[in-house]
Design a binder for these strands. Structure first.
Lengths: 193, 193, 193, 193
DNA sequence: TTTTAACCGAGACGGTACGTCAAGTCTTGAG
DNA sequence: CTCAAGACTTGACGTACCGTCTCGGTTAAAA
């Protein structure tokens, strides 16, 4: 039992060290040797827990940053979505997290295991929460029954990821609001009669 | 003149070899040494042209895949957008290109030079074309004058990139159509009176 | 203990391989990569043990060729010196050793660490033995008390090295004898009265 | 004629530059590229004149340091030898020349062409002059007719080279004198009756 | 309490690739 | 025709990590 507790301590130490080092030198220059050295741990002790640097990093980022990104349900869908997405955007704007999260997504592009882990442990749960919140509103009649919830989720997330990963312009509340407003007010391009 | 021509030949050979190797082993296992060896070229000859593997790969991908992704202008905005985006999606679905493009975007997450190059040479031009096509329609009165063109572009691109990079589900024409229809028909979630 | 033993084995293997390769291609074309490859060893494993090619080679040559070049003491100084120097000359004439030893001395001309190692591990000990043998003879009254032993050593060694390194004519027993005779019979150039 | 003169100028310039650079960075770090660059000359222009770095360096050292090391003939052999050898030793003690000459001899150990060039252009001529001076003395009856002149030359040179190349202790006039005195006074080790 | 087996830190090991450097050859355009 | 300039192939350098594999030296549990 004690052994297991020490084991758990070590697991935590390693993840924390990995994160610290990633903050200092960036994910690209993060090395298992440096993590092991700094954590005062043998390399095997790391490899016994995680099969690759990517998965260790994924675990570190997700486990140590367990901020509740849960949706409130105040009854006002739009306000709830806005608040939740603002929180997410704030997190990504807080200095280390944006680049680290970008690095993680980058890693997922080469490493299928990381991609799978990222999806299963973060992306899908978040998407599900968004859809669930929308569905709740739909049930209450606040949203039209033939509104495509999955698509709405994609239209909300997509532009943010596009900005984060591709154009790398800063994510602002104002931009989030424009997307939300377009989605909810209707982004109808048709010329008015 | 001859020297310059031979030089240009070599540049092309190197890019082609880089691409070939990337197809065979994937970007992650692509090495400068292997490229140099296969291309029958010294490593310096590569480093004289590109400062890093990422930029060589960026150049290879963009230069050797100069498919015109220009928008037609048939007068029907929706049809033109649909055709153009379908073409892009088809390209990404053609086996090697999807993973390679994903790898490139992944690399851009660690390497600012790649990110900048990708933006300047591909993302921005494409975005500009989309906006230009929309603006043309706006001028002709086919689209409402207060329609936010930049946002429309982001709403069109974002979900596709989200699917490509994050959920990694296949990109289909059907999905493109859903997005286009939502955008143009209006994705109004408000309950009908 | 096992680890240390395996370590020592590897050290020996590397030195032996270095020597083998030097025999085949000569010191000038000897490369760390070739040694590592042939020995089935990573380059780091070599660099962990020796900081440069020169010092590895020095170690290989001296450790693996630990022929006792000790002076006998039969009571007859001249005979003892002659025997010992003939042995040294024979060694240098045995095909690989002459060129390899020349290469080592050559390396010592650019590389102070090799020069120091060569002196400390080979030149000085040999010189000391020669002087010691002469001193023993002096003690026994076989040699005049004001005979300059250091100079005698230099007069014995110098011409041999001159021939080995500079004129590169073959070293023969006959040449050794001429030097010994001159030294012991007196090389008095003064015209006889 | 003009072309040839310019050609000769260039040859001189290259050798001078090689020597200058060798003084600055040492022979080991001397590179053809650096010489060409500094001399304002294409690499081919160098390779057209000398087939290798070693031979260029040999040429530079010998051609640009044409100090007359000729023996005077004042009638006093011993004094003449002493003066000449002191001059040589002084030259080697003047800072750059000792190390450079050592480097040249070092190079000769790997490179037969350098060894041959060094012998033909410097070692043999010097040896011949020494022997010639001794022979002159012999003819005048100042030296015994059965004195082995070649051996005397080797006994004079050998210890100096030994000190220069092997033990790397400083060469002093005092050491030269000890050798000369031993040679001329007779280094007779036999116990006096 | 003593034994014993798992676990650990440390870091050596065989590899692979890095990015740099220089060698010696080859090509071009200016004079 | 000769030259400077410098691109080119080649090949080695020394470094950095990878992921695997010992090695002793603690422990914590079973005996």
């Amino acid at each position: 039992m004690n052994a297991r507790r020490r084991s758990a301590d070590r697991t935590e130490t390693i993840m924390q060290t990995a994160l610290d080092l990633a903050l200092e030198v960036g994910y690209a220059k993060l090395s298992m040797e440096a993590i092991a050295g700094r954590a005062g741990v043998g390399k095997d002790t790391i490899y016994r827990r995680w099969p690759s640097k990517g998965l260790l990093f994924l675990d570190s980022l997700l486990s140590l940053n367990q901020r509740a990104l849960d949706y409130p349900d105040t009854g006002d869908v739009l306000a709830d979505l806005r608040q939740q997405i603002h929180a997410a955007v704030d997190l990504l704007a807080t200095p280390p997290w944006g680049p680290l999260y970008r690095a993680l997504v980058g890693e997922a592009q080469h490493n299928p295991a990381v991609a799978a882990g990222l999806n299963d442990r973060f992306i899908q749960p978040q998407a599900d929460k968004t859809v669930a919140r929308l569905r709740a509103a739909q049930t209450k009649g606040q949203v039209s029954p033939d509104f495509d919830l999955e698509l709405a989720m994609a239209v909300l997330s997509g532009p943010l990821y596009f900005q984060l990963l591709i154009t790398q312009e800063p994510l602002t509340h104002e931009y989030v609001n424009r997307i939300l407003d377009a989605l909810f007010a209707g982004l109808d391009p048709r010329p008015r009669p």
